[in-house]
Simulated assay, not measured.
Amino acid sequence: MGWTLEQLRTLAALADGGTMAAAATELGYTPGAVSQQMTALAAAAGRPLLVRVGRRVELTDDGQLLLAGAREVLAADERARSALAAPRADRRAVVTLGVFGSAASAGFGPTTALLRERAPWVDVRAVEVDVERALEAVVPGPGRSPLDVSLGLDHPDSPSPPVAGVAVVPLLEEQYAVVGAVGSLPTGTEALRAALNEADWVLPPLDTAFGRAARTACARAGVAPLVRHTVTDTAVSLALAESGAGLTLATPLMLALRPTRCDTAPVPDPSGGAQRRVVALVRATAAQREAVRLVLDALHDTFSRLRP
């Protein structure tokens, strides 16, 4: 049915005024224009809407039924217009942000604090995402609503393929360090490398980006890690390392997630390639929203302060 807001508004004015002339006066039309609007509305509805009684008109049963819906539509239209006309301070724009453990711990609070100062009308709502599925979180799919922005990870040693329509915004680059129980990491590059080859390890599975990147970093450093414990959760990995169950890799953000008494040492890789990048993933269409751009700016400034 192809009726318009103006036709529905004419129907309501006619019901309130009772005559074509009264409706025309209320709307600023001519009586002929009111008649044309109602003829078009009846054609769109596919059934008679009015009955003439002298100069007055009354609504048919179908006209009354359509009127009830028309008033709801017109009220919703008025609320939308009022919302757009309101001062910026009175508006609310919701931005959904996918987060994962270490990045959320370090970045969510400062980001929302910046937004409260800069744009208090922007309401950021966090949604936990599996960091391995951060890209999926911002891409529309059957049966799911995409997030506006998601924090994710980019591993140079295990890069993700680009996805059309999704921008990757770099936020922070971190170096991995070897983490082990107190006294488990000797000094000196060769002594450390020998210890890393002899020790048990706690690493993520090989079918994860971090798992692949960790093993590539170890191989480049001349280390073949003996993976005894397969763990994806950062806090669990650090707890196992602290207990002496094995060595693991972690970045400053990961170490900040859980207080630990572990020793740390740089990965003995002369290329310095053992690293990860915290990124923001955003659809190109979502990035056109002012509120989303403000969130991206706040994320950028927050993580800039965390850079060494």
Rank of each mutant, 00 (worst) to 15 (best):
A42N: 08
A68Y: 05
D77T: 14
S35Y: 05
R79A: 13
G63H: 02
R81K: 15
M38V: 12
R91E: 02
F108S: 04
A44V: 12
R47H: 13
R47L: 15
T39E: 08
S82G: 05
L49T: 06
S35H: 05
L67S: 10
T96E: 08
A45I: 03
R55V: 04
L41K: 03
A80M: 07
R88E: 14
A85S: 15
A83I: 01
D62Q: 11
R52A: 11
L50F: 13
L67I: 08
A44K: 08
D62C: 00
A43R: 14
T111A: 03
E58K: 13
T111F: 00
V94G: 02
L50C: 08
S102P: 11
A43H: 12
G98H: 10
A93E: 15
E72A: 13
G69Q: 12
R81Q: 15
G109D: 08
G69L: 00
A43W: 09
A76G: 07
R88S: 09
R55G: 14
R91M: 04
V34I: 10
A93Y: 12
G46A: 06
A44I: 09
T60I: 09
G69C: 00
D90P: 00
V95D: 10
R88C: 00
L59F: 10
V34L: 03
G109P: 00
G101V: 09
A93N: 02
R81H: 03
L59H: 09
L59Q: 11
P87C: 14
P110I: 11
V51H: 10
P87D: 15
A80H: 05
Q37C: 03
D62P: 01
L97D: 05
A42V: 07
V99Q: 01
A83D: 07
T96Q: 06
S105D: 05
L74P: 01
S82E: 15
A76H: 09
G46P: 08
P48I: 10
A103T: 12
D90G: 02
T96P: 10
V34T: 04
G63E: 03
F108R: 04
A43T: 12
A43D: 12
L74E: 11
G101P: 04
A80D: 11
L41G: 07
R81N: 09
A76S: 11
A70E: 08
A113V: 06
T39D: 05
P110H: 02
S105V: 08
G63L: 01
S35D: 06
G98Y: 07
E72C: 01
R88F: 09
L84C: 07
R55I: 00
L74V: 06
T111V: 04
G46T: 05
A44G: 11
D62K: 01
L67R: 10
A89M: 06
V53S: 14
A106D: 03
E58I: 10
V53F: 14
G63Q: 02
P87A: 15
V53I: 12
L74C: 09
F108H: 03
G101M: 06
G98K: 02
T39R: 15
Q36W: 06
V57M: 06
A43Q: 15
A86Y: 05
G54E: 11
D62E: 13
G107E: 00
G63C: 01
Q36G: 02
A103Y: 15
R56W: 09
L66S: 05
V51I: 09
A80L: 10
T96L: 01
R92H: 06
R79V: 13
A42I: 05
V57H: 14
L41D: 04
Q64E: 15
T60M: 04
M38G: 13
